[in-house]
Design a protein around this nucleic acid. Sequence first.
DNA 1: GCACGAAATGACCGAACGGTCATTCGGGTT
DNA 2: AACCCGAATGACCGTTCGGTCATTTCGTGC
Lengths: 206, 206
Amino acid sequence: MSGKTKEKVVEQFRCESIQDAAMRVIARKGIEETTIQNIADEAGIAKGTVYVYFRDRDELLAKTADRAFEGLVNDLRPQFETSGPFADRLRGLVQRQLRFFDEHRALFRATLALTQRETELRKQGTRCYTEYAAMLAQFLTDASAAGELRSDIDPQELAAVYRDCVRGVIIRRLDQKVQKARKSVEDDAELIVSILLHGIQSGDSQ
Amino acid sequence: MSGKTKEKVVEQFRCESIQDAAMRVIARKGIEETTIQNIADEAGIAKGTVYVYFRDRDELLAKTADRAFEGLVNDLRPQFETSGPFADRLRGLVQRQLRFFDEHRALFRATLALTQRETELRKQGTRCYTEYAAMLAQFLTDASAAGELRSDIDPQELAAVYRDCVRGVIIRRLDQKVQKARKSVEDDAELIVSILLHGIQSGDSQ
DNA sequence: GCACGAAATGACCGAACGGTCATTCGGGTT
DNA sequence: AACCCGAATGACCGTTCGGTCATTTCGTGC
């Protein structure tokens, strides 16, 4: 009985090894410079073996992108499920997201590189990215329904703006190679949250 | 006397022809799929001729990116120089930027593709992009000095957030292929301006 | 119309990469 | 120990692309 199961387990383990290797290489070199040979070397296997587990380059990349988002989604889910004032939940969300990518910088470089092929990737399995976007939209839709957001803003569009802002901050944090030069997660998060909550004008009710 | 000058003029004309062709191809196919042969075909010249005017692919791409931003900077400059209430100037700026790329969609696809190689491009000539960023930062620094912005926000960081937001909107407008599906420039601009000015919370002084 | 130098050309080269497949390897069964 | 079968391998192939350079074309002055 354990026959079939064992094979499946081994296969999944190999797949994940290759995907993890792919993420490391992509984080290091960018997606266009990453070759199958690079990934195989990083995983410590032969090039041909990659093709035992993945049909072609595109499938490997798509599944790798999916796996990259899996960690983020799992990390963020608890935060979406907390209760409390909207401002606090929003702040917690931004902080968590910044902290997650601080601790997995390579992962973000990979997801960033992989997300830039968004159009092509949408065709294939982007299960986890879709889930991330959906959770965020739901979070804001709930807040809007609860009357915590301006009723003239579409939560979907707000979700898009939120993603733009957070993504920008993460990219800038990534570029600051030296830890010293980087501001704290709390400070960077506060900038985004503060702007989103109160706007940028002086004396405007902040 | 016109000998030297004429040669220079012709050379510049050729260079610009090639850069314009490069922009069209990049807008159509994306930067990684664009080959020198494609660009030469689009420009109606032979591949070897490209190398008469540009040392290699990287130099052509860098100078093309620079030229792509030239149009934007020229279009935006008048708006930076207008006077009036900050809110109006900001709104006008966003609108102008959205409209510019609505009218030059190909150009934005090119700049987007070219900006994604930001790190490499910074090494070479990104004169015009730098100028764009500088003008924006100056605009916000002036506003801050005039007491129109919250004093606890660094104008430099605000400029970055502004760029993130506007870029996101432009990308989303670009993805909506059908004109019908697209909202008006005014509506999309208003979303960004409204969020930036007043924040997203309900009843927060808007 | 001839001669000369610069500009333009495109056939060609070498490198790199994705993908294939005949061969080898390894561990489990008899 | 002999056998078997699926997993792993890496040499190999076809293609693509950036870049070169010997040759051709063209504009200009005499």
